[in-house]
Design a protein around this nucleic acid. Structure first.
Length: 312
DNA sequence: GGAGAGACCTGCGAGC
DNA sequence: TGCTCGCAGGTCTCTC
């Protein structure tokens, strides 16, 4: 399932294949994929027709394409963003118009001709947790670029609630500590909260907590400033490692814009390793094993020995 | 305002 | 063989 590294791989693909092109036609095949567009699928189709794509930006797991609408001046800055969230199973694929339509294709954008690039951007989503919609751009609250891939201090209204993500150099450990220090909730819930820091999903939360030797139920407010800085470093490292590997893929649900899967799942130490020996413990000749536990409606993986249950 | 639970959604595998 | 059920999980909404 797409998390921050996977979304960044997709963003880079969109930036190279879609930026500078015009949407000649938008076709919504399944209205459920654009349900977050308040004015309905027909309005989305009409708004996108003739719009120019000016880039590809990401904050956390939210992607957006700043666009200039057809009725705006050719030199005008983007006033609106085409938002995209991949949810659990979303894919944004660049394909030729003659390529067979995917079973779960939901939206098709026909793009202006470019000799070296296919002509369609397709949004494919099996489970429909993701979607596309339009959102107006507004200035960022801190005057900094809105996200990765942008030099422009603007952000979509629908992305303004999302905190800066793990790979954003503007996110500082001190800011994260101040945010966590106010929370009595479990550390895993805190780092999954996109309003605290963005881009962390279930897989990488478990991996970073394993690297930091923290139990997922440890109260966020109990972490020292140094431990928060260490956790942020682990989060950044695990994301960077995953990005270098092209993302994590357990099945065909996550692919880049060319349809290729990543291979970081082979490097995971906690997530999906139920019953296996913990790598920390193997190195220290201890008997720790990875267990899977249900928490918050989803699975959490931890080592029984180096991620012990916190004392209440 | 913070925290937790439930809903959304579909394909797959297990169990009967 | 075919049916039912549980599971996977990011985000939003609702309730307390």
């Amino acid at each position: 399932m797409p998390e921050l590294p996977e979304v960044e791989v997709v963003r880079r693909g969109l930036d190279s294949w879609v930026s500078g092109r015009v949407v000649e036609r938008a076709t919504v095949l399944d209205p459920r994929a654009v349900r977050r567009h308040g004015d309905g699928p027909r309005d989305l189709e009409l708004s996108l027709a003739g719009a120019s794509v000016l880039g590809a930006v990401r904050r956390g797991k939210f992607l957006w394409l700043p666009i200039r609408l057809a009725d705006e001046a050719p030199d005008a800055a983007a006033s609106v963003a085409l938002m995209a969230h991949l949810g659990m199973s979303g894919q944004l694929l660049i394909e030729g118009a003659s390529a067979p339509l995917e079973r779960h294709a939901r939206v098709i954008l026909d793009l202006s001709e470019r000799a070296d690039a296919p002509s369609q951007l397709r949004f494919v989503d099996q489970r429909l947790f993701g979607g596309l919609w339009l959102s107006p751009l507004e200035p960022t609250s801190d005057g900094l670029p809105g996200g990765t891939g942008s030099g422009d201090p603007s952000i979509p209204v629908d992305g303004a609630h999302v905190a800066r993500d793990v790979l954003d150099p503007a996110l500082e450990a001190g800011t994260l500590y101040a945010s966590l220090h106010r929370r009595s909730t479990a550390i895993k819930a805190a780092i999954l909260d996109q309003g605290v820091l963005s881009g962390v999903g279930n897989i990488y939360a478990d991996e970073a907590l394993w690297r930091a030797r923290l139990h997922y139920l440890t109260p966020a407010s109990r972490l020292s400033r140094a431990k928060v800085a260490e956790l942020l470093t682990h989060l950044r490292n695990v994301m960077t490692d995953a990005l270098a590997a092209g993302g994590t893929s357990f099945d065909s649900l996550y692919v880049n814009v060319n349809g290729a899967s990543g291979y970081f799942d082979r490097s995971l130490n906690a997530y999906g390793r139920e019953g296996e020996a913990c790598a920390h413990c193997v190195a220290a000749a201890r008997p720790g094993r990875i267990v899977r536990e249900k928490w918050g409606g989803r699975s959490s993986y931890r080592c029984t020995r180096c991620q012990r249950v916190p004392r209440v």
